[in-house]
Design a protein around this nucleic acid. Structure first.
Lengths: 357, 357
DNA sequence: CGTATTTGGTAATTAATATTAGCATCTATC
DNA sequence: GATAGATGCTAATATTAATTACCAAATACG
């Protein structure tokens, strides 16, 4: 480069502050063992700030830039739901022994903010990156992430090319075990209220539901699947629709807790009691679920475990071209008091008359 | 320095990778317009990583280190309570227009981790720092924070020397307005269940309580102040103690929502109804409060506003020696259904016989 | 087969910063 | 009022990294 007019050097600061370049170096680096008066220090700092000193050109984007054990954690949203916090906590716990520091930035799913956030993270010299999204989904990893040349793990999302380790909740298994839990309590006529069906999670939980039915040799009845939208309102409406059926279900698998809240309301309005008249299970284990009456049986999202998994799979040997399978972690069922065996009379109808002892 | 054995330079990498220093520079900087084969690039990266290349020495800790608009947010705990997240969200909203990126790190109140966290934050070249604690309290700001030479704001904490702008909730005003709310509903015999009294927040809320009584010319009765510990259990015990009083109160100001939950339980067990037999107000506006029966009147902690305030007061002109007053933001009361006028009969006793129309 | 062009580098130069050594000036001390 | 530090700084130098200019081998091509 022939002309570099923009760059501010220590020489410029020295000229502005009326001292030597060496003095500027001493001040800005706070070099121990040098004697510079406070006045000169102030003048230097002031000049540096006024001129917008940016440090040396020699700040290579190279790996291990000074800080070891700093792991970047990029997530699209922090405040909207607790999952991100839980995952961060899991990551923190897992890296506790190693003394790692987590640096968290929000990408806000914004084409302007995301590169800024990632740059802010990386220019600090992180040694690894965890990239998380709030909603489980396939993503296109931006090039400025994939070309970072540091170990990277995807959390709650994955790319089509499987170029990075990725971990997501096992929603299929979760839907399956929720449904199986109802089946083992003797239910045969089990309804489900889905989320917005275009979302991966909703499809997977439904798949799990069907799989559990198939495993137990219970025929699938499309009448018992109502499409919701994760909201309590949809849960209410769907439950009402189910109750109006000629053969109403004896149990409802609500595919998230908010839907279950609407379901609770509808059952109350219909004069039915949980779990005597109707068993209900939710999904997500939101804080409120344990305070419902009766406390809701639901599945915990494994975000804590996913955070831990991510840390444990930050493998430095990134063989180029390697392909990783997507890891799926179990959503464990927390059993509370919203599930019971169906009433004998109801059960007899579908059980062909023989009741269990 | 005569011997510098530790420092890894591009020369070292060049030797290890079997190429020139220039080639290393090209590769690590991804300099456009240079032709380096992929094999050489790989060798260079591998060597750089193996040797632990840390970048140039010339990475001055100077101001404005490359990244403008990156604000560090250090907080002791992220996961234990939602306040930190709310404050971060407030800060994010406030800096939205400016396009700032927030970089969040947890200090974990740990003498080992905190310096690491702060260093991770600052070495990225943040232009400002917000330092937050979960519990409102006076702190000793570590020297590596106070000597950072960037605009700094304290959130939910403050130093004895007032050397930095600081913002905390106005707990005194909050306690006062909670109590006043009960007074305006006609209550004269108002109890309070405190938190752990060594905590600033508990003391301040109690002070607000006393101040509200004094303003309304209601004599302070020590019998009506029970020391709790923020827990539901303490709330239960304290309420029972209050109910056993010769002249039980008609309203209870629980100094946090969890205490109020215990209080609700105790009242239920005593066969009393809220708000007909006893008015209750809480504090903190936890998620659960709106789902209690009846929904709890409580005060919202102003963490969102505090986050915004912090961003707005990141003033770059840090005149050395300047003193800042501690800003206090209002805890606004959210009125739900746990407060009503006292029963006429109860009120008559203390009202001297004349009831309001 | 000679020549042009691309590929893949190096050597030398330059820019920027860190560090060492030393030089005035002040200040306390006898 | 000489003198021995201590203080506050600069000049010179050493390191390090970025960049330019150039070079040799491989490849394409008529």
């Amino acid at each position: 480069m022939v002309d570099r007019p923009a760059r501010v050097t220590m020489m410029d600061i020295a000229a502005a502050a009326g001292c030597s370049q060496a003095a500027v170096s001493f001040v800005l680096n706070d070099t121990p063992g040098t004697r510079i008066s406070q006045q000169t220090r102030d003048r230097v700092w002031e000049a540096a700030r006024a001129l917008g000193y940016t440090g040396a050109t020699y700040t290579t984007k190279a790996a291990y830039s000074g800080l070891d054990n700093v792991i970047g954690f990029a997530v699209d949203q922090l405040a909207t739901s607790p999952e991100a916090i839980v995952a961060i906590e899991g990551a923190r716990q897992a890296s506790w022994n190693a003394g790692n520091v987590l640096l968290v930035a929000q990408t806000l799913s914004d084409p302007v903010m995301e590169p800024k956030a990632i740059k802010a993270l990386t220019s600090g010299g992180i040694s690894a990156l965890i990239y998380m999204t709030i909603y489980t989904r396939q993503i296109e990893l931006p090039s400025y992430v994939s070309q970072l040349n540091i170990p990277t793990v995807l959390l709650n999302c994955y790319t089509a090319d499987h170029a990075f380790p990725a971990v997501v909740p096992s929603e299929i298994a979760g839907g399956q075990s929720s449904t199986r839990h109802l089946i083992t309590h003797g239910h045969h006529r089990i309804a489900t209220i889905t989320g917005e069906i275009w979302m991966q999670a909703a499809q997977d939980r439904l798949t799990g539901y069907r799989r559990a039915l198939a495993t137990a040799d219970i025929p699938f009845d499309p009448e018992l699947v109502i499409e919701g939208d994760w909201s309590a309102g949809a849960g209410y409406a769907a439950t009402m629709k189910l109750l109006a059926l000629k053969e109403p279900p004896t149990a409802i698998f609500c595919q998230n807790d908010r839907t279950a809240i609407g379901c609770y309301e509808a059952l109350k309005d219909a004069g039915l009691h949980i779990p005597q008249d109707m068993s209900v299970v939710g999904y997500d284990d939101e804080e409120i679920s344990r305070h419902l009456v009766p406390p809701l049986t639901t599945s915990v999202l494994p975000h804590l475990a996913m955070g831990q998994w991510a840390i444990e799979h930050l493998n430095p040997d990134s063989t180029p071209g390697k392909r990783y399978p997507i890891a799926k972690l179990e959503c464990s069922l927390v059993k509370r008091h919203s599930v019971a065996a169906p009433r004998a009379d109801t059960r007899e109808i579908f059980d062909g008359g023989h009741t269990s002892p």
